[in-house]
């Protein structure tokens, strides 16, 4: 079970890397799309090693649900702009110490979740279909 041990380690590493990509995306190459794809590929590695059933169990939540939550997060970022009286999806920024926080970052988190969830749902579906 070397592959599965390695897979677990690599998945963890890739998830970490994907979050790094997501967070630095605003200032350097990266972002929600890239991060989401990296995370999805990490999980797919796990699928190839352990099968979809184990991957689903490891993920704990339904990938489609993750995608919907992501869509909700992105919408929330949009409505925060709306709530402040500006048009839908207007960016709002605040500074927390030295860290910039803004609705575009939240929006990117939504993108990340949609990409992870959507891609995983599609791949799981294919794997299960083909069996």
């Amino acid at each position: 079970m070397i592959l599965s041990t390695v897979a677990r380690f690599v998945v963890a590493l890739m998830l970490l890397f994907s979050v790094f990509l997501l967070l630095r995306g605003h200032d350097a190459p990266g972002g929600g799309f890239l991060g989401g794809l990296v995370a999805a590929i990490g999980f797919i590695l796990y699928v190839l090693a352990e099968g979809t059933r184990a991957a689903r169990a490891a993920l704990r939540v339904d990938p489609l649900g993750v995608a919907y939550v992501g869509l909700g997060v992105a919408l929330l970022a949009g409505f925060m702009g709306l709530a402040s009286g500006a048009p839908f999806l207007t960016a709002l920024w605040t500074k927390l110490g030295d860290v910039k926080l803004g609705t575009p970052v939240l929006f990117d988190v939504g993108v990340y979740l949609v990409v992870v969830g959507g891609v995983l749902a599609l791949v799981f579906a294919l794997e299960e279909e083909v069996g």
């Binding site: 605003h26 972002g31 869509l71 575009p104 990117d108 993108v111």
Partner: peptide
Amino acid sequence: FGRNVVNVVIVDFRALDTLGEITVVA
């Protein structure tokens, strides 16, 4: 507030487009 112009376009300037696109993925 971003140095990566592409990402700023995606999540801020043209965020509505992106919202439509992630909807397609879902």
